[in-house]
């Protein structure tokens, strides 16, 4: 690890001396968390994604010190959210006298859940994200108040549930009842929104690995969510990130939890099928 860090610094110095401070392409590196959980950060793209042959976790597009931070839970600031959610997990809340632990025992019992999200909920007849399943538990089983999409309690809980799936491959379903949601998300992915007329694909399919000013463009994969963003020093949800991206095209954005963002989440998640769950990851 240390060697990679030094190599990264040498690379940076070399690039700066050229003057543009840019190292194109994904970093040639591999991620093992806590010295034991191997993370698939690059693999072959799913057959239904025409625009990509290889898929890369956003981890490959961050600086060496950020990459190293994610390799140890004691260095990953996102794990503070996971720890906070562990406490909430066993706290009784609501009219039914229940905690998460009352039905689900240990959080480890949720291993694999994140790999399927979002998922068509047969009983509800619509596409469900992890946030929606969590709130159904709270309102229908616990008799507790729903959490807001971007409340810290909610983001921390999604971080905890993601963390126990780390190393497992993302594998959202895109066919059957999911198909129309997937199509809607795909349509959005290629729509050039806002006054800057930028689609997701303009940056994250056609230009990943390239720099926009100081920003190294990734493929916009969401296998690492929620992510701890060093820029804002907190955990961020998938929809919050989508909102920021669309806002930055000088567009009227969509709301976290909106049908549009749920469809987009499914489509973007499917572009990362095969990458390991990494949440909570560390990014810029």
């Amino acid at each position: 690890m240390k060697n990679q860090k030094i190599l990264g610094l040498i690379g940076l110095t070399a690039a700066c001396s050229i003057g543009f401070g840019a190292i194109a392409g994904p970093a040639d590196d591999s991620l093992v968390i806590n010295g034991e959980t191997e993370i698939v950060t690059k693999t072959t793209a799913p057959a239904y994604i025409d625009g990509l042959s290889e898929i890369y976790s956003g981890w490959h597009f961050r600086e060496a010190d950020t990459r190293v931070m994610q390799a140890d839970d004691f260095d990953n600031p996102g794990m503070l959210g996971v720890e906070a959610a562990k406490d909430v997990w066993s706290e009784v809340d609501g009219s039914e006298g229940k905690a998460c632990a009352s039905c689900h025992d240990d959080p480890a019992s949720m291993a694999g859940v994140r790999t399927q999200m979002p998922k068509f909920n047969e009983a509800k007849g619509t596409m469900y994200t992890m946030e929606m399943y969590i709130n159904d538990c709270r309102t229908e089983r616990m008799g507790a108040e729903a959490w807001g999409w971007d409340d810290s309690d909610m983001i921390n809980m999604t971080a905890l549930i993601s963390s126990v799936s780390r190393g497992l491959p993302m594998s959202v379903a895109v066919d059957g009842p999911a198909a129309p949601f997937w199509e809607q998300g795909k349509e959005m992915y290629y729509t050039r929104y806002g006054q800057l007329e930028l689609s997701c694909a303009n940056c994250h399919e056609d230009n990943y690995g390239n720099y926009i000013r100081a920003d190294h463009l990734s493929q916009g994969q969401i296998n690492g969510f929620p992510v701890y963003r060093l820029k804002s020093a907190d955990l961020s949800s998938i929809h919050n990130r989508f909102k920021g991206c669309i806002r930055d095209t000088r567009a009227e954005t969509f709301k976290p939890g909106s049908p549009e963002f749920i469809a987009l989440e499914l489509y973007v998640a499917s572009r990362g099928n095969g990458l390991s769950v990494e949440g909570p990851s560390v990014r810029n």
């Binding site: 007329e197 567009a251 954005t253």
Partner: peptide, 24 residues
């Protein structure tokens, strides 16, 4: 072209009020 149009005022999808995220 991916390049934004710098002297164009109409014909956008969900045009926003600068970088506020709100509708124009």
């Amino acid at each position: 072209s991916m390049m934004p149009s710098f002297y164009k005022t109409k014909g956008y999808i969900r045009p926003g009020d600068a970088f506020t995220g709100k509708a124009a």
